[in-house]
Amino acid sequence: MTPEIKRVGAFEGLPAFPATSRVKAVPTGPLARILFRGSPAAAASVSAVFGAPLSTVPMRAGEAGGRAALWLGPDEWLLIGRDGEGEAILAAIAGAVAEPHSAVDVGHRNTGLVLSGARAVDVLNAGCPLDLHPSAFPIGMCTRTLLGKAEIVLWRQAADRFHIEGWRSFAPYLLGFLAEAAREYA
């Protein structure tokens, strides 16, 4: 690839998030992302080659070897891998999944950030209408939902760490919304 062809991330040039000891938001940087759609049988075939298992239990993420498969719907999973793995993942799926399916590269459509800290739940609940208590939204749970006026995919990676995915053009809104909610914890 020609060296001068620069990739511009969705969070580049945005005001810095007021990171504090109680909450911080860090963009994930580029990741490989494949939106996989198909039957549970097709998903099982993907699990075998992708590494991380595609859950058939609603709203659960499977994670292994630096890859994750987030259940989004009964026929829809968001597969996340390291930057640069997209082509290889697509090729692996094409080679291994005999069942009818759809696999589409959304690595540039989506953009991600990790919100963490003791106040992460409070900051999220400024705009996310879901119950984020561990009893209702345990570690490993993921779902599409809303943050303010933007749709997100929310995935709880740890008690106080969430991976948030949104569409690229919503990045300034998402970061701005979270920063506004986090102001009082600065």
């Binding site: 759609r37 009818p100 759809s102 690595g107 540039h108 459509r109 989506n110 569409w167 690229r168």
Partner: peptide, 12 residues
């Protein structure tokens, strides 16, 4: 029908 849709508005 065996067909699935994915929004790619922001991919490109």
């Amino acid at each position: 029908l065996k067909v699935w849709l994915t929004s790619t508005t922001e991919q490109w």
